[in-house]
Amino acid sequence: MISRPTVFLVDDDIAVTRAISSLVTMMQLRVLTFASAEAVLSIGAEEFKNDGCLVLDIRLPGMSGLELQKSLRERACELPVIIISGHADVPLAVEAMSRGALTVLEKPFGLETMKQTILQAIELDHQRRERARERDLVRERLNNLTPREQEVLALIPLGLTNKEIAAQLHLTLRAIEDRRSRLMRRLGVRSIAELLLLVQQAKAA
């Protein structure tokens, strides 16, 4: 299901929340607003399945923005985080950045800045998800190989020749050549370079 990207807005000030949600709505994006960090954690995980980003006021009642950032990460939710900060919160903002926030917007910020930042965050999230999707596909293809093919595949990246592989697996050269061409066909790659790239992709975290 393809749905519009969602902006999760966490701010305890109603006026600021209203202003930013109007802006987000104007950008044809979906907006969910929360008055506290705890409220964000109370929603279901499926809400985080679409592209999106988190806009977070650094000063919140109860759980702080920094703690929310951490809790979300623990739940494997890797939405890009945009921090809104007051002038006085520079040290907090620095810490937020070091914990992986995408950027810090200092109040007062202009409409254009906010827009660009949100678009950039959503684009980032989109790319990240794309990469993850590709990686999952590659992994699936690799997992679909037979155990025998996988045996051979594990040895190819080590730079062994077919002869050496045959020796190591106690098989004939002919059998190795067979398996090798079969697995390359099944993975849809035409050269060793492409094959290695695929393996690399699957390994990426």
Binding site: D13, A15, V16, R18, A19, I20, S22, L23, M26, K107, P108, F109, G110, L111, E112, M114
Partner: peptide
């Protein structure tokens, strides 16, 4: 902040 944003919107 809210005033400024709303005016721009």
């Amino acid at each position: 902040v809210a005033i400024a944003l709303q005016a721009e919107i």
